[in-house]
């Protein structure tokens, strides 16, 4: 039996009249890769940000390895993100005036690693991700796929045990997208770490060990086309706590 190390209970979040998260429960286990799919505006990013301690939910809690993430203050959450989590965003969002290696090394330097060591480790990661010889290029001199691999190196160089990726292939063509997904999976789940990934590309999702679906703030095991009116209403589903479990049925078939 695998142990839970990131778990969310009854997460709810509204923005004005809109519901971004509606009573979401979720358990994530070490070493798995979880894809979260859903239409635009269904709450995927909000869920990812809440799990990662970027956004605070209106109610509910997130627990990471025994730490109540939702109970931390802003400074503590910032520290948690920089030390324990890795992030890959849609457009890389690397610092344009830094070189590839400096972008990666910065993540370690922020955790107090001396620059020399940080750059040595970063060099290894960049080479591992097929970017050998490109360390000293500025971000503008890299292609979209290469920039995403720099972002992957930045997310894993600190040894983060969990990486959150929000549409990491959203800006890439399908070939590059497949390459970046391979790199991302190898760098994370391939090394025993965990990947939580938001995507609306079924091909990308199919490569993860499990896929979940968001619809109007509700998380489910299967894609749903039920109209919003029949969706779970907070409190209505008492007793039937909805806990998607790690399963093998979403396994990628090459």
């Amino acid at each position: 039996m695998t142990s839970t190390f990131l778990s969310a209970r009854s997460l709810s979040k509204r923005y004005g009249a809109g519901i971004a998260l509606n009573n979401v429960d979720l358990d994530i286990h070490p070493g798995e890769s979880v894809a979260i799919m859903g239409a635009s505006g269904s709450g995927k990013t909000t869920l990812l940000h809440t799990l990662a301690g970027i956004t605070s939910p209106d109610s509910g809690s997130v627990n990471y390895e025994g730490t109540d993430v939702t109970g931390l203050n802003e400074t503590q959450r910032s520290k948690l993100r920089r030390e324990a989590f890795g992030f890959v965003f849609q457009s890389g969002l690397l610092i344009p005036e830094l070189t590839a290696i400096e972008n990666v090394a910065l993540a370690l330097m922020l955790n107090g690693v001396p620059r020399r060591d940080a750059e040595a480790q970063s060099l290894g990661w960049l080479a591992h991700l097929g970017l050998a010889g490109m360390e000293n290029r500025r971000i503008g001199e890299l292609s979209g796929g290469q920039a995403q691999r720099v972002a992957i190196a930045r997310a894993q160089v600190t040894g983060a045990r969990i990486v959150f990726a929000d549409e990491p292939t959203g800006a890439l063509d399908s070939t590059t997208s497949a390459e970046v997904m391979t790199a991302l999976l190898n760098a994370t789940a391939g090394r025993g770490n965990t990947l939580v990934l938001v995507t609306h590309d079924p091909t990308v999702a199919s490569r993860c060990s499990r896929t979940l679906f968001m619809h109007d703030g509700v998380l489910s095991l299967a894609p749903t086309s039920r109209p919003a009116a029949t969706q779970a209403i907070p409190g209505a589903s008492t007793g039937t706590t909805f806990l998607p479990q790690l399963s093998q049925d979403g396994e990628a078939r090459a």
């Binding site: 990662a52 993100r81 920089r82 969002l93």
Partner: peptide
């Protein structure tokens, strides 16, 4: 703006 927001999400301390 977008870059600063992303750095904040990565956990770069604001004083830095």
């Amino acid at each position: 703006r977008e870059l600063y927001v992303s750095l904040d999400r990565l956990g770069m301390p604001r004083p830095i």
